[in-house]
Write a protein that binds this DNA or RNA. Structure first.
Length: 868
RNA sequence: GCGGGUGUGGCGGAAUUGGUAGACGCGACGGACUCAAAAUCCGUUUCUGGCGACAGAGUGUCGGUUCGAGUCCGACCACCCGCACCA
């Protein structure tokens, strides 16, 4: 028999699906909608195996949901702005738009060759002015709605390149390209006020039932709500003279106020700056802190250091108690008020600091059953959990109270005294969106010397990125462009300058899911289309976007709703985070990374294909260009065809886990493809392609096959619904095995009941495999005599009566140990089962001369005989 | 440090959520077909002992609950991920 040739078959069906517009998303009819979306790719050049796996998962869902009678939206677009295009321009002299355009063309062709059920009519690219003009318009909407702010903020500045660097471009405190030490520079930048939504973004997580718990938790921690209070201390100098300044601190542990033994201020705190004017020691400390750098590593290594300011805070509840003020390097100016009170007894960091500077350590919370005077603190701070078992000690009017009640009392007294108030704070910061880059969406703002900041009038949108820029000098090409930024002020008509910053590319990706609903609309989102398709029912992508992209998108949906563009505020009802594709790593004797195709493995081990030199095999890691452990997707397609690759990347490994690519695995998938093709060929050869009628009666073997087929269909349906593709594939394998055996059993000239059962089993296999291997499935469908497109055929129906057997098989255990298996009628009662189990020879032998004490019968599952 | 997760054959992984551990695939071994190879097909494949029927052990470790534990509870070990001076 000839072999199945994917290279001739696959393009045929791809063209036919395209011609018949099978995957165009329709909004008509009574069907329910389903919106499935994979995170859109950055057009980096070529697709890799990770893309293949990611988009195949979405494709399976899209095809399955279509078969289940949904109107499916499954679009594709390009996250096309970003730094690599500018780097290509600098390194290879190719314009970013040309580089990006070529990559898109290549990747589109590659995606089409893997047979994705995409509505290509809805394709978008974020670098297209027809896309980003709406982004500019929404920025102006958000500005009007008070969701945008301009403020000064620190950036990484490369003094040689004369440009701002992203955090990832700063390596060991130096610019990645220039190698120059990076400076902190204060620049006026645009911010989205995402922190306005902190509470809503936090609460919204509770409703996202179809998100992985892990991602919800990560977002929750990122938003970082804390409930505390902010209050202020009266200050004195060393001689006891009252100061005008008050010291405002934020704490979540106001119950421990009687344990306070110092206050610590960030080096950038205004009171510290004031103290530095008169104290050289403080001034030196401030300089040291500034020089320390801001990398997390540096912060981690730095000792807990501080300097006394010579000032004192007066305890709010205890007359005459003076608490010394320090500036300390572990206090952040950017959180709370930039100042804290330290309670060393119950906080390790405060304790380390207090021990170092010889400050008192007063325990204020202790177990109720311990005498307060016996509580002492050693090297470890006492961790206190709130609860009935602990109470306040050494704390004046709080002593004896529980932690929660103590907090209430302190808050009430401070509020009554007008020195503080309860306050909620968040870790979440506003989203800085200004980038001093060329290849991004221009920020539609004009700076006028007389009118100040003026939004570009809507009639003048889009602000288009100029093509004629050069990359031969450092800095932002838009800044250097000879005339682009020089404009007249739309407000006063005087000379003015355009904003030359562009948006962070996360802005582009924060609303693309909405644009797909109506990609050619002259509004950002057509109201009806948005209301119909949103939210995305299933969003698929890597966990690396668990925080930023997903949080920004959630913010955008809220902001768009406020501006009237959307009717939902959660963009993604369901989220699925898929694992990465990994591969072994290889190095030659001199330590150079090798590509997998440069390595052969045989009995002697791994060696170089050309030199024959021994190769060392390293750990299995995520495919990356730097370690060269990548396989080219197009080469694999040329070798195996799309179906084989699609089948392989979903087999074996659960989709949320990292999988290992291996050529043996791909070959195994290829074998299955051939096997399925032969099986369907065998069935067609035996039963013909004519009409088949359900036989009036089925022989036992044919009925068994039908049962297996319906059981498999039932299981696969549930598995696909739950995205357990590896299990679905295992089930399909099982049915293929059973059906292949049945073909042999049925013989060359099968009876009508066999014909029906064989056909049914074959068609179930094809229909179930279709979402994963659509080309072969279409081909097989036609082999069985159908002239319809399988892409348009409904998912088969399970006959529930075929899911139950006439008999059931139960394990028989003696004292929890399996000894035998019995088969009884499905309707057998507990007593019948017990009798059958006790009659089993093996069971009897295991019982021996022991006495049966008890028999536990779980119908359908197990019998356990307890004997002693 | 804080938070979360995972641990099952040579490997990827199943196990109806407390009920026959190892489905399915990969790899390996044996056999058939072939002059030969590829392809294909049929077996075997958790470990130990035994020719065998069979017996014993077995889901990171130790303990507990239960007629029954991979699954639940407690303690520990190992690895992975996220956040990280957040007051």
């Amino acid at each position: 028999m000839e072999r199945y040739n994917p290279h001739s078959v696959e393009p045929y069906w791809q063209n036919l699906w395209c011609e018949k517009r099978c995957f165009a998303a329709l909004e008509d009819g009574d069907k329910p909608k389903y919106y499935v979306l994979e995170m859109f790719p950055y057009p980096s050049g070529r697709i890799h195996i990770g893309h293949l796996r990611n988009y195949t998962m979405g494709d399976v869902i899209a095809r399955y949901k279509r078969a289940r009678g949904f109107n499916v939206l499954h679009p594709m677009g390009w996250d096309a702005f970003g730094l690599p295009a500018e780097n290509a321009a600098i390194e290879r002299g190719i314009h970013p738009s040309e580089w990006t355009g070529r990559n898109i063309a290549t990747m589109r062709r590659q995606f089409k060759s893997i047979g994705l059920a995409i509505d290509w009519e809805r394709e978008i690219a974020t670098c297209d002015p027809s896309y980003y003009r709406h982004e500019q318009e929404m920025f102006i909407d958000f500005l009007a709605a008070g969701l945008v702010e301009r403020k000064v903020s620190a950036v990484n500045w490369d003094p040689v390149e004369n440009t701002v660097l992203a955090n990832e471009q700063v390596i060991d405190g130096r610019g990645w390209r220039s190698g120059a030490p990076v400076e902190k520079r204060e620049l006026a930048q645009w911010f989205f006020k995402i922190s306005d939504f902190a509470e809503d973004l936090l609460h919204g997580l509770d409703r996202l039932k179809h998100w992985p718990e892990k991602v919800r938790l990560m977002q929750k921690n990122w938003i970082g709500r804390s409930d505390g209070m902010q209050f202020s201390f009266v200050l004195e100098d060393g001689e006891g003279n009252a100061l005008d300044d008050r010291l405002s601190v934020y704490t979540t542990r106001h119950d421990t106020i009687f344990g306070a033994s110092f206050c610590a201020l960030a080096a950038e705190h205004p009171i510290v700056a004031k103290a530095a004017r008169t104290s050289p020691e403080v001034a030196q400390f401030v300089r040291d802190c500034a020089a320390l750098g801001t990398s997390e590593e540096a912060i981690e290594r730095a000792q807990k250091k501080g300097v006394a300011l010579g000032l004192y805070a007066l305890h709010p509840f205890r007359d005459g108690v003076r608490i010394p003020l320090f500036s300390a390097n572990f206090v952040l100016m950017t959180y709370g008020t930039g100042a804290i009170f330290g309670c060393p007894a119950h906080d390790q960091r405060d304790l380390d600091f207090a021990r170092h500077y010889g400050l008192p350590v007063i325990p204020v919370v202790a177990p109720r059953d311990v005498a307060p005077e016996t509580v002492s603190v050693g090297r470890e701070a006492l961790t206190v959990q709130d609860g009935d078992a602990v109470c306040m000690i050494n704390s004046d009017f709080l002593s004896g109270l529980g932690v929660a009640e103590a907090k209430r009392q302190v808050a009430r007294r401070m509020e009554d005294a007008g020195i503080g108030e309860r306050m909620v704070k968040y870790r979440l910061r506003d989203w800085g969106i200004s980038r001093q880059r060329y290849w991004g969406c221009p920020i539609p703002i004009i700076h006028c010397p007389t009118c100040g900041v003026v939004p570009v009038p809507r009639a003048d949108l889009p602000v288009i990125l100029p093509d004629d820029v050069t990359f031969d000098q450092p800095g932002n090409p838009l800044e250097c462009h000879r005339d682009w930024k020089h404009v007249v002020c739309p407000s006063c008509g005087g000379p003015a300058e355009r904003e030359t910053d562009t948006f962070d590319t996360f802005v582009d990706s924060s609303w693309h899911f909405a644009r797909f609903c109506s990609p050619r609309s002259d509004r950002p989102v057509d109201r009806d289309a948005g209301a119909y398709w949103m939210p995305v029912d299933r969003y698929i992508g890597g966990v690396e976007h668990a925080i930023l992209h997903l949080l920004y998108s959630r913010f955008f949906a809220r902001a768009m709703r406020r501006a009237g563009h959307l009717t939902v505020d959660e963009p993604f009802a369901g989220l699925f985070t898929q694992g990465m594709v990994c591969h072994e790593t290889y190095k030659d004797a001199s330590g150079n990374w090798l590509y997998p195709h440069e390595v052969v493995k045989d009995a002697q081990g791994a060696r170089h294909t050309k030199t024959g030199e021994a190769v060392s095999v390293g750990p299995i890691e995520a495919m990356s260009k730097s370690k060269r452990n990548v396989v080219d997707c197009e080469e694999m397609l040329a070798e195996f065809g799309a179906d084989t690759l699609r089948w392989f990347v979903l087999s074996d490994t659960p989709p949320e886990r990292d999988m290992e690519w291996s050529s043996a695995g791909a070959q195994g998938a290829a074998r299955f493809i051939q096997r399925l093709w032969r099986l369907v060929g065998d069935i067609a050869a035996r039963v013909g392609t004519g009409a088949r009628r359900e036989s009036a009666s089925f022989g036992a073997p044919a009925l068994d096959l039908r049962r297996a087929a319906h059981r498999a269909l039932d299981a696969v349906t549930k598995d696909i619904e739950n995205l357990r593709f590896n299990r679905a594939i295992a089930r399909i394998h099982e049915l293929v095995n059973v059906t292949a055996q049945a073909v042999r059993d049925a013989g060359e000239d099968p009876s009508p009941d066999w014909c029906f059962a064989l056909c049914e089993a074959g068609e179930f296999v094809i229909a179930m495999a279709f979402p994963v291997i659509p080309h072969l499935a279409e081909e097989c469908w036609r082999m069985l005599g159908h002239d319809t497109l399988l892409a348009n055929v409904a998912w088969p129906k399970v006959d529930p009566s075929l899911l139950v057997d006439k008999t059931m098989t139960l394990a028989v255990q003696i004292n929890g140990r399996r000894r035998d298996e019995i088969t009884v009628a499905r309707q057998a009662g507990r007593k019948d089962i017990e009798v059958a189990a006790l009659a089993s020879g093996k069971a009897r032998r295991a019982i021996g001369n022991k006495t049966v004490r008890k028999v536990i019968v779980i119908p359908g599952q197990i019998v356990n005989i307890v004997a002693s």
